[in-house]
Design a protein around this nucleic acid. Sequence first.
DNA 1: TCAGAATTGTTTAAAATCAAGCGGTCTGCT
DNA 2: AGCAGACCGCTTGATTTTAAACAATTCTGA
Lengths: 159, 159
Amino acid sequence: MSINTELDLDRPMRDVRHEAVLNIVRTASVLGQRGADLFRRFGLTEAQFNVLFSLKYKERNWSQSDLGRRLVVTRASVTSVLDKLEEKGLVERLQVPGNRRIYHVDLTAEGQKLLDKVEPLYRNDIHEVLSGFDEETCRNLIQQMEVIRTRVQALGESK
Amino acid sequence: MSINTELDLDRPMRDVRHEAVLNIVRTASVLGQRGADLFRRFGLTEAQFNVLFSLKYKERNWSQSDLGRRLVVTRASVTSVLDKLEEKGLVERLQVPGNRRIYHVDLTAEGQKLLDKVEPLYRNDIHEVLSGFDEETCRNLIQQMEVIRTRVQALGESK
DNA sequence: TCAGAATTGTTTAAAATCAAGCGGTCTGCT
DNA sequence: AGCAGACCGCTTGATTTTAAACAATTCTGA
């Protein structure tokens, strides 16, 4: 009845690097769906939560483009997600003196309040899921992910 | 000009476990986009490629539900992706004797042929991106990802 | 046996995403 | 100063994905 016995997830691997990539992607997918289930209880999609969360912990002003790079989505996606969040009164676009091209995006008080309700549950989930990972393991994992992203970027530039 | 100097990706982390999760998700996203760029040159989306690829290496017959579990997408998604692939003549739904509820999905000769063109480039990309990862590192990484998925699943069942 | 529960594939409506392209704006170079 | 190029946010149109509901089918347990 387990997914491992029903599918062939535990068969021997031909290409261990490829299998590593598959595992990263699949794990991100599982994590994302778990998150989505949680966020939905608060009327938020995953994309919407990601925006709110990023805004809460930003340490300087972010334009919509900055947000897009941070979340690895296009500017067009940022626009549509922000439209939804602004409708709900959770974020606001602020005009930037001296630069009429960009908006700085910020949480409203209401957005802050909603996030304060969701975030503890979210962090609790993560803590539970990674309970077996000590700090060193996490740092090592983070560094490996960074290496991969750097390599992908280099690959894209040499194109 | 680098993304790391422009954004705050390298600031000290408050919650190393959470940062690990973010890194996994972000890396999967970057990998997915890199893949999508490649697949598009062959008229395929990422989801379509994933289906073709899974079918090529399956070791027994898979229903659409099996495929969905394997790819971590819903049955509805599988239906729509298969519709597209069937239109293009790359896969086929086969009736299963003795069970009128399910289809077994398979590559057509044409699907096989297309995949044979894309796969070398795909594997080459992956090999390049993970060139700094030896076999042990990969196996370790894979195991960590499996642990995370198992924990997420356990979390979902205790719900 | 056989009625209730579970599973399968599909449909529908909503949301996210993207590429492409648009004007408006800023910057850097001459 | 002025112009070309880069950047920003937005719109459009298309695709993908999902949750939810549905009918058909299969399974299960009393």
